[in-house]
Nucleic acid binder design. Structure first.
Length: 450
RNA sequence: GGUGGAAUGGCCGAGAGGCGAGGCAAGGGACUGCAAAUCCCUCUACACGGGUUCAAAUCCCGUUUCCACCUCCA
């Protein structure tokens, strides 16, 4: 049985689902720019949970939202609208563009698609009716500025996920000036904001023309698509507060139930010692990895070498190491034939189920790789078993490179030089070929390249 | 100030009371005309101070340092 660390109870708990089914929600991207590999680490977490849960025999339904409206950078400045100004194209085009690129990046990291990707902009009615219900039942109110706010103090267990207490939250910290005084309490948050001068991405509601707050979208979409009971809610550690705390308050106030059974959070990725962020200037995109001639799955491999709930420091050195191990393992798998037979391994299975102990599973694979007692076909079957969860595409056979005519000429001349034992010329040509992107190997049967 | 974590060799990183994970880098060797690749070998650590124990990197107390969150964040 799969076991995971649960944030609210701070314990490793059994993941049982109900009636053999697991309902999962993973907070998705705000589509105003490319996802960097740090963002993708979180989506990899949900992918690992899905894969491990399926291995444990559960059926999984995964819903991941696309935030294409309502995510404020500062008050009244929507991230997508500001990017739309930068790129000088329609905000919905911005959202569409980056949503497509998000899906492409997921595919490059072998992250299985969710069952449903609801868009915030297409869920406005769900949010409006959720907000109406919250106002009706006294969980929300209309502030003096016309915005609708959630009343944090009306929700008794606020803070259960993050450990923050309402009375300990620093009042006034990064307080938005325009909201000053409009809210009853500093920790209240906006469910719906009045448009004022804003003309794009606004909707008509009972409270006037406006747009939704960020937190309400996940409550509205998860309740609509997964129902009143969600087994697992996954996201990055930074969403623990305030996003998930607020979401829990909203959802529970709507359903009268503990809507989400387990909250699961992935830790942050650091790059060369610092949190990956635009302001630190250390953002790495999947494309950057590809541009350095590394397999994008090297990033996946590097992530798997660390437990999901420890901060990890990614470096180019670790990506290069991952890349070469990946190549070596693919040749181990290829050497084992072409069978798709899978042999399960208790030790690896235990590692996966024990709170996604992927480092241990990789260690076990390294031991299998070295074990002379295991024949190549069995090695292949064991690696294929692991790959169901690891998703490293270990059966991939390297594509044969197509030689340019220039490369063919160089190879031919080198072969002739070698027959003449003209090693100076042979070495010169090797240098040219390497500059040309071909690695040359000389063996007993002559030269080969890759 | 509140909250959640972390500290292991040149570097990255598992391990959670008892035979020194593994990887990368480096050095040596085999192979090679020379390389590359591959294979073999070598190097060996648990932040600090106390305590518990036959036995502590691992448990307890304290200290120091670092990271993250506290209303933009994966």
């Amino acid at each position: 049985m799969l076991r995971l660390y649960e944030t609210r109870s701070r314990e490793v708990v059994d993941i049982t689902g109900s009636a053999g089914q697991l309902k999962m929600y993973c907070c998705g991207p705000t589509v105003y720019r490319d996802a960097h590999v740090g963002n993708l680490r979180t989506f990899l977490l949900s992918d690992l949970i899905v894969r491990a849960a399926r291995l444990s025999g559960l059926g999984v339904t995964l819903v991941q939202n696309i935030t294409d409206v309502g995510h404020m950078a500062t008050d009244l400045e929507d991230k997508i609208l500001s990017q739309s100004k930068v790129e000088k194209i329609d905000p919905f085009e911005i959202a569409k563009k980056y949503e497509e690129r998000f899906h492409a990046d997921l595919a490059r990291l072998n992250i299985l698609p969710a069952d449903l990707y609801p868009r915030a902009s297409e869920s406005i009615e769900l949010m409006i009716s959720a907000i109406e219900k919250l106002v009706e039942n006294g969980s929300a109110y209309i502030g003096t500025d016309g915005n609708v706010y959630f009343d944090a103090q009306s929700f008794p267990t606020y803070g259960a996920i993050s450990g923050n207490r309402l009375d300990a939250l620093k009042p006034g910290y990064r307080f938005e000036a325009s909201e000053d005084g409009a809210k009853r309490f500093h920790a209240d948050w906006a469910l719906w904001k009045i448009a004022h001068d804003r003309t794009q991405m606004v909707w008509q509601t009972p409270w006037g023309l406006g747009f939704p707050g960020w937190h309400i979208e996940c409550s509205a979409m998860s309740l609509a698509h997964l129902g009143q009971s969600v087994d697992l809610h996954v996201g990055g550690i930074d969403l623990r507060f305030p996003h998930h705390e607020n979401e829990r308050a909203q959802s529970n106030a709507l359903t009268g139930l503990e809507t989400v059974t387990h909250w699961i959070h992935g830790e942050h990725l650091l790059f060369e010692g610092r949190k990956m962020s635009k302001s630190a200037g250390n953002v790495v995109l999947v494309q950057d990895i590809i541009d350095r001639d590394l397999d994008p799955l090297s990033a996946r491999f590097a992530f798997l070498e660390n437990r999901y709930r420890s901060q990890m420091d990614l470096t180019w050195a670790s990506l290069k190491a991952a890349h070469s191990t990946l190549k070596r393992w693919r040749s181990v798998v290829a050497a084992g034939g072409t069978s798709s037979a899978v042999e399960s391994d208790a030790e690896m299975e235990q590692a996966f189920f024990n709170d996604l102990d992927t480092p241990k599973a990789l260690q076990r694979l390294r031991a299998i790789e070295k074990d002379a007692q295991i024949n190549p076909a069995r090695k292949r079957a064991l690696f294929l078993f692991a790959d169901q969860v690891l998703g490293l595409d270990l059966t991939r056979v390297p594509e044969a490179k197509v030689l340019t005519s220039e490369q063919e000429v160089l190879l031919q001349s080198r072969q002739e030089a070698r027959l003449r034992k003209d090693f100076a010329e042979s070495d010169r040509l090797r240098g040219l070929l390497e500059a040309n992107g071909l690695a040359i190997h000389d063996g007993p049967e002559g030269q080969s390249w890759s």
